[in-house]
Computed example of a mutant assay.
Amino acid sequence: MGIYYDYFSAPDDQAAASAFAEGPDDAGFDTVCVKTIDPAVLLGQAVGLLICEPVSRVTGHPRFVHLVTSSEAESTWIVTLPDEVRDAMADAPCERLAEISIPWSQAEEFYGCADPGDLADFLNELAALARRARSHDHGLYCHMVL
């Protein structure tokens, strides 16, 4: 068993929450799916590397992994990512994403099993999603399913 993460864009929190039951892809939202990269820890680390700031600065933002669905749910959640994360990802060149993927791949949470090339591919997909989201004035969200 594992947790699946669907990063997606939506116009606002209410629209994002509408993807709770069926998932953002099935609900028609622009989505990037991944199994191992959670928003709270691993994505926070990548963004910290990207903006050259401590992870605590990234994760300390009030909209970083802010729950937009019921806290009563036991196996499905939708959380926000701040516009600052969206914009940092949207502005990141491919070369920079590949560069940060190397130290990021060594994060303890990857247990020595992360390939920097695969991580760079994910970051490039997320950056493309962020660019599309910003062009439509949408926010980024993550749908998590246990």
Score class of each variant (00 low, 15 high):
Val41Asp: 06
Leu49Gly: 03
Thr69Leu: 08
Ile37Leu: 12
Thr36Val: 02
Ile37Arg: 06
Leu49Thr: 12
Leu50Trp: 09
Val47Met: 11
Ala46Phe: 11
Ala73Lys: 06
Ser71His: 13
Leu67Gln: 15
Phe64Gln: 13
Val55Phe: 03
Cys52Met: 14
Lys35Thr: 00
Trp77Leu: 06
Val68Asp: 09
His66Tyr: 11
Val68Ser: 12
Val58His: 05
Val32Tyr: 06
Thr36Trp: 07
Thr36Ser: 11
Val79Ala: 01
Pro54Gly: 10
Trp77Tyr: 04
Cys33Val: 00
Ser75Thr: 09
Val55His: 03
Val32Arg: 06
Ile37Gly: 04
Gly44Pro: 05
Val47Gly: 14
Glu72Thr: 14
Leu67Asn: 10
Trp77Glu: 06
Thr36Cys: 04
Glu74Met: 09
Pro82Arg: 12
Val41Asn: 07
Glu74Arg: 15
Leu42Glu: 10
Lys35Phe: 00
Pro82Phe: 06
Val68Gly: 08
Ala46Asp: 10
Pro39Arg: 03
Thr76Gln: 08
Leu50Asn: 13
Thr59Gln: 03
Ser71Arg: 11
Ala46Pro: 06
Val41Gly: 01
Cys52Val: 12
Val55Leu: 02
Val41Pro: 02
Glu84Cys: 11
Arg57His: 05
Pro54Val: 13
Glu84Thr: 15
Phe64Asn: 08
Ile51Thr: 09
Val79Tyr: 00
Ser56Asn: 11
Thr76Leu: 03
Val68Lys: 07
Ser70Cys: 14
Ser56Val: 12
Val79Ser: 01
Leu67Gly: 10
Pro82Glu: 10
Val55Cys: 03
Leu50Gln: 13
Val55Asn: 04
Val47Pro: 12
Val68Glu: 05
Val41Cys: 01
Thr76Phe: 07
Gln45Tyr: 15
Asp83Asn: 15
Pro82Ile: 07
His61Ile: 02
Val58Leu: 08
Cys52Arg: 14
Gln45Trp: 14
Leu50Ser: 11
Ser56Lys: 09
Leu67Ile: 12
Pro39Ile: 00
Val58Ile: 10
